[in-house]
Design a protein around this nucleic acid. Structure first.
Lengths: 207, 207
DNA sequence: TTTTCAATTGACATCGATGTAAATGACATT
DNA sequence: AATGTCATTTACATCGATGTCAATTGAAAA
């Protein structure tokens, strides 16, 4: 028998679908192998296309990376916005928001994303996060009945504190916890236990 | 005029000196340009040698990277040990130790180092830090007069909390603080203000 | 069916990073 | 001064990632 090209009748995707598949694969590669693992060849191989095809859709390798950053940043902001929405509607506890942030950074991959962006120096990609973060501060401030600017500044400090902890936990939490004989949820519990320090505000002190 | 080789009478260094210069340059490149900037050509160019020379001294590009990680990890553990020593001798305040940790991660470059290691997956390089970290927990525990195992566990959580915050501040602190209108020392102040929560234990003997 | 569009591919070119081997020369020892 | 060691260089080879371009082909439109 001869060697046939039974291989594969080409599959033609819509551009948006092609981009979606590529970004999903690229995201998995980033989380599993780090930034250097996100190459045109690797992504192309995972979704069964050629690297030239990716260049066609993203313009260049840098274009793919940029699109990946934008995509993951969008996921992060969406996760934050949803957490804010839950906080505003029912009696969503601030603790639930802390968990949402930690999940976004660890499971969601925002931690590795942020580290990648920070190390590469492309801080501009973080810009879309600004609105979500400030929205988050507003939500907590409202929830806690904060009014004066100074107390609002304190809420900003609380958000900074939560985000830094969640980011650190996502990246170096596991090995560090191992060194310190700390349980898996140590970081969250610490943040949760420390949070009241910030969120307890004095009622308008007239006395 | 003829092209002369006035150029460069070779400079012959001792192996350890050559390695030292290379690692110093590599460290600067890592901090300024990220992991991808640490190439044989770049390091060689900075110290005025050829890339083949670096391979001679470090065996391979991976060898250079590994040596850089080891060198920076050694600097970090030394910084931690010195901070512990100051804490043990005089009345070095815990706050001073917090500042030392933050400086090590930001100025010292331990933050970018840890992120690089975490993203690359070479967690083994962090192993030498284990002893320094545990030593740090011991020092704080002694300072605070902690005795029972449970309270010591709390000290470990405090160290985890400080380290995660310092790491996060070093990597994504600046852009995040900008988004939140927080001052440069916001992260340190938060940690400092929250620390008593952990360090306040039963009054130690004497006073 | 025929035509048209563009997603997709294959082949090729380029560039940078890494690695190898032989030759060179700086410096200590004799 | 003669010699040996080895740090250093030069030249070359390799490999992977990126990019270009013409040809192919799936699928909708005519």
């Amino acid at each position: 028998m001869s060697i046939e090209k039974t291989a594969t009748r080409r599959r033609r995707r819509l551009p948006e679908e092609a981009r979606r598949e590529a970004l999903t694969s690229a995201r998995a590669l980033l989380l599993s192998g780090g930034p250097d693992a996100v190459t045109l060849s690797a992504v192309a191989g995972e979704i069964g296309v050629t690297h030239a095809n990716l260049i066609h859709h993203f313009g260049s390798a840098a274009g793919l990376q940029s699109a990946l950053m934008a995509s993951m940043v969008a996921d992060l902001t969406q996760a934050l916005d949803e957490a804010v929405a839950r906080l505003r509607t029912d009696e969503g506890a601030p603790l639930e928001l802390v968990n949402a942030v930690f999940d976004a950074f660890s499971t969601g991959g925002a931690g590795r994303l942020a580290a990648w962006i920070a190390l590469s120096g492309d801080l501009s990609h973080l810009e879309p996060v600004r609105a979500a973060v400030q929205n988050l501060v507003d939500a907590i401030s409202d929830k806690m009945g904060v009014q004066d600017a100074q107390a609002r500044q304190g809420m900003g400090a609380a958000v900074l504190f939560i985000a830094l902890s969640a980011f650190g936990e996502a990246l170096i939490g596991p090995p560090l916890r191992d060194m310190l004989d700390q349980p898996d949820d140590a970081a969250r519990r610490v943040v949760a236990s420390l949070l009241p320090r910030f969120l307890i505000t004095k009622p308008p002190t007239g006395s």
